[in-house]
Amino acid sequence: MILFNYLLICLIFGTTFLAIKIGVDAAAPPFFSAGLRFFVAGLVLYVWMVGRKKASFSLLLHKEMLLTGIGLTFGTFATLYWAEQYVTSGIAAVLSATGPIMILVLQMVVMRQKPTPRSVWGCIIGFSGVILLLLPSLTLSASGWWVLGCIAILIGEFFYSWGALYSKRVIQRFPEASPIALNAAQMIYGGLLLLLLSAFTEHDPFASLQSPGAIGSLLYLIVIGSMVGHSLFYWLVAKTNPVFPATWLYVSPLIALSIGAMFYGETISWITILGVITIIAGIVMVNLDNLNQLFRRRKSESKKLREVHS
């Protein structure tokens, strides 16, 4: 069941980038559709957790929920949705996978944590992969909006990295709260901020959200992308540990690139493939110590179980 759910979240998260692209290409306002997605998904999940008596509405009154929402939802997805107007879904997925590298950089610069040499090399290799991805369009004839879109996604990943580090402190401060409830609360706040941004920047968003592509994209992202995908993610965290489920970042960009090329006509050059491989190699190096620790722990647990049964 664990392996099946892991493969399922890789598939879900890998397809959300194309779903976003279909929505924005159908003229769905990026900030409004992102805000509606997360506010509705967060609200439904939170009410469900309250109904199961695993959360209380008083949790929403804490400023930590707002701050986490700014990092994990508002900053991350305002930039991603806006950027996918100009960037293919596959490239967006690959650039979004740089989050673990940015987390390491923040830990080094802000938290003064000393990294391992392997992690530093992982950062250098991952950054080289980003340069390789950008190279084909860094010419005199390149679209400036394409470059700005790529930069926006990287800025969004900075927000995500800050939010991920901050959320660890929030989980420790509210140990009695369900991780699903905490995630739902930050989605509510992040969604509200996105809707507020839409109110100031997008004209008559409801009128632009009436095409089948825009509606289908929004429904898929609310139900499958946010409610099912994030719930499965936190289920895996509870059943295993925080490291193993997060390895979807290594798999989903490949899925996003493949389905974008097969079903949406997105082009993939050999330099793009080289950039993807380089970025994923860098991410793996950054997280190799955690992955080795995870595999050793699982091997030890399996050995103990065999000894008990024997």
Results as ranks from 00 to 15, higher is better:
129 G>I: 00
65 M>E: 13
307 E>K: 15
229 G>K: 03
190 G>V: 01
84 E>H: 06
267 T>K: 09
73 T>V: 15
265 G>V: 09
212 P>L: 02
250 Y>C: 08
134 L>V: 07
102 M>K: 02
190 G>H: 11
240 T>R: 02
291 L>K: 06
118 R>V: 14
62 H>L: 02
105 V>K: 05
171 I>M: 14
30 P>H: 03
202 E>A: 11
126 G>W: 04
110 V>H: 05
197 L>C: 07
172 Q>A: 15
217 S>C: 06
198 S>Q: 08
175 P>A: 12
117 P>T: 12
263 F>V: 01
170 V>S: 08
255 I>H: 10
257 L>N: 12
251 V>H: 10
24 V>N: 07
101 I>E: 04
102 M>W: 14
145 W>A: 13
51 G>Y: 07
44 V>K: 06
283 I>D: 06
45 L>T: 15
128 S>V: 12
165 L>H: 00
290 N>I: 02
159 F>I: 02
177 A>G: 04
292 N>S: 11
216 G>H: 13
147 V>S: 06
158 F>N: 04
125 I>L: 14
257 L>M: 15
200 F>M: 13
55 A>G: 09
47 V>T: 13
1 M>R: 07
171 I>L: 13
80 L>G: 07
72 L>W: 10
205 P>S: 10
98 T>C: 13
82 W>F: 07
169 R>C: 02
